[in-house]
């Protein structure tokens, strides 16, 4: 509990600092286009890695593909591409993943 609040406090401080530093110190300064692009790509890289870490699960010292997660992600990918609606795509993805889990356990 205390650990969680400590984490929240540190995240709040570091996030606020990143906001105020940009506003106060970086305004008017020229930044290279490459650095700008790099900053924009970082979240894409981290989110992709998070998805991979959920699909490839370490089990007994080796990695195993979680079929329900893989299918759920694929269906969400297709749903987002087709309908471009966040919440319905998430719900459809979860339902498909659950269905695969049900089939695997049947």
């Amino acid at each position: 509990m205390i650990r969680n609040w400590l984490l929240i406090g540190l995240l709040a401080a570091s996030t606020y600092l990143s906001r105020i530093i940009g506003l106060e110190l970086m305004a008017g300064r020229k930044m290279s286009p490459a650095l700008r692009s790099y900053f924009h790509y970082v979240p894409v890289g981290i989110i992709s890695a998070l998805i991979i870490k959920q699909i490839f699960v370490p089990t007994d010292g080796r990695i195993v593909i979680s079929l329900p997660v893989l299918v759920a992600c694929f269906i969400t990918f297709v749903a987002m591409k087709m309908f471009k609606m966040f919440l319905p795509s998430v719900v459809v993805g979860v339902i498909c993943g659950l269905f695969i889990r049900y089939l695997l356990n049947a």
Binding site: T15, S18, R19, M26, A27, R29, M31, H40, V42, P43
Partner: peptide, 10 residues
Amino acid sequence: LNLRNLLYGA
């Protein structure tokens, strides 16, 4: 993740 806030703020 917060690095992009520097750009937004500027």
